[in-house]
């Protein structure tokens, strides 16, 4: 194809997205669109998979059967969400094995929030309430994104995710209304998860390199700073219901903006964690790669058994 032809195709492509048409896997697309989508969808999938690790540890330690079944269901959903997203990503011509390889070798990123430890039961509450809350804010606009398989996966994810946040809030509510020690535990979890949750919505707009392109492709409908403000504005009143204090002395209602002003985010910490120096980066990767390697014999045995069954069937047919 000549350069002019490609330019022409690109213009038609951008116009389709502009008209709110969806792009499907077999449609022509610019190489950059394909690559950006593989990167974003796989990062998203990896985040769901690694996101199971901080919570998985608490399933056997849940304080009641009710809490245990809920947490188990939430972690199962995360596995499911990872799988929806991996298969959406594979429609772009990348294999599941390549995607796992990228995660396991550290080439691909996942949400840095999962590199913080889940120290107490209250962390299960804070993660559901804040981390899933921030994730929902990020994900809802993606239900309308331009790439069909991603949008369809996100619709399913968003439908399922709201229970995650509610079960987290319920845990916080129970603790906040419990003994002084329980309330303290809830406050401590909020203190530790608040700032990482704000960071989850991404670098500030002036530092975010992909925003303009992502807006055009509807991979983003609002900027990171807009999403962060939305998250803060909706979460502060929820903390009030809990009777807990957001750990930000600069947090203040701004009557002119009809929004909360908030304190400075420690972006050095964010970049440190992104670069692999968070408290749990090594631990998470070790757990993930270990699980993959320990499962290898099961995958191989299943394949060998499937082939044996198939061979037997073919022999009988002769």
């Amino acid at each position: 194809m000549s350069e002019d032809q490609i330019k022409n195709l690109e213009a038609q492509f951008e116009a389709r997205i502009e008209r709110d048409e969806k792009i499907e896997p077999k449609d022509w697309m610019p190489e950059k669109y394909r690559k950006t989508h593989i990167r974003q969808i796989s990062q998203h999938a990896h985040s769901e998979i690694v996101g199971m690790l901080p919570e998985g540890n608490w399933i056997t330690r849940a304080p009641s059967l009710r809490r245990k079944v809920a947490l188990l269901a939430k972690v199962q959903d995360e596995a499911g969400h990872g799988l929806y997203l991996y298969s959406a990503c594979e429609t772009l011509g990348v294999s599941r094995d390549e995607l796992y390889e990228q995660l396991h070798t550290g080439k691909a990123k996942y949400s840095s929030i999962f590199n913080y430890p889940a120290l107490t039961w209250a962390d299960m509450g804070a993660i559901g309430w804040l981390v899933d809350g921030a994730a929902i804010i990020n994900q809802v606009p993606l239900c309308n994104t331009s790439f069909g398989p991603y949008a369809r996966a996100m619709i399913r994810v968003c439908k399922e995710e709201s229970f995650h946040q509610r079960q987290g809030f319920e845990i916080m509510l129970k603790l906040a209304n419990g003994t002084p020690e329980q309330k303290e535990m809830a406050q401590d979890a909020l203190n530790r998860w608040w700032w990482p949750s704000l960071m989850m919505l991404g670098p500030t707009d002036d530092k975010s390199v992909h925003t303009a392109q992502s807006m055009k492709w509807k991979l983003k409908r609002k900027t990171n700073d807009e999403l962060r403000q939305q998250f803060i504005d909706q979460t502060v009143p929820q903390a009030d219901v809990l009777g807990l204090t957001i750990p930000d002395p600069d947090l203040k209602w701004n009557e002119d903006r009809k929004s909360y002003d908030f304190g400075e985010i420690d972006w050095d910490e964010f970049w440190q964690v992104v670069k692999g120096h968070g408290p749990m980066n090594k631990e998470r990767m070790k757990a993930r790669v270990g699980a993959w390697e320990r499962g290898k014999w099961v995958r191989d045995a299943a394949m060998a058994y499937a082939e044996k069954k198939q061979a037997r069937k073919e022999k009988q047919a002769v």
């Binding site: 298969s87 959406a88 299943a302 394949m303 499937a306 069954k309 198939q310």
Partner: peptide, 11 residues
């Protein structure tokens, strides 16, 4: 609904 990986049809 989507796709997934499995060793055979039953799985």
């Amino acid at each position: 609904f989507g796709s997934l990986h499995a060793a055979d049809a039953d799985m």
